[in-house]
């Protein structure tokens, strides 16, 4: 059985904001299936009692003092912007009003 369907790949593409083509969907579905079946091997390891590792450095509490450092100039900040207006980054109209915070 395939690990992932074409529809699931289409869903992943939407979640990832990738406007993939129909042709790409076919290719990716096959490739992601091979990859996911291979990586699913991690499931063979009995690791119920094993703590996860997210960082390999044994550091904690790396904090910075609350001291102001120089900012970019607005020109520098906007230098790479595809579009800007009124010293702000311009974007096309937004569909989704909801924002989490």
């Amino acid at each position: 059985m395939a690990a992932i369907s074409r529809e699931e790949v289409a869903h992943l593409a939407r979640l990832s904001r990738l406007a993939v083509t129909e042709e790409e969907l076919d290719t990716f579905a096959g490739q992601l299936d091979v990859i996911l079946q291979a990586v699913a091997q991690v499931g063979e390891v009995a690791a119920a009692d094993i703590p996860p590792t997210s960082h390999s450095v044994p550091l904690t509490n790396v904090l910075r003092e609350d001291v102001v450092t120089p900012c970019l100039t607005p020109e520098e900040a906007l230098s790479g912007a595809p579009d800007a207006e009124e010293q702000r980054f311009r974007v096309p109209r937004i569909l989704d009003e909801d924002v989490a915070s």
Binding site: V91, P92, R93
Partner: peptide, 24 residues
């Protein structure tokens, strides 16, 4: 819309291997 432009931008800007890994 912004959502469409973002998706078209990422589709055009990323190569196939990057897209595969983002989706994985």
């Amino acid at each position: 819309s912004l959502e469409e432009v973002m998706s078209l931008t990422r589709e055009a800007g990323f190569g196939p291997e990057v897209k595969r890994r983002i989706m994985i």
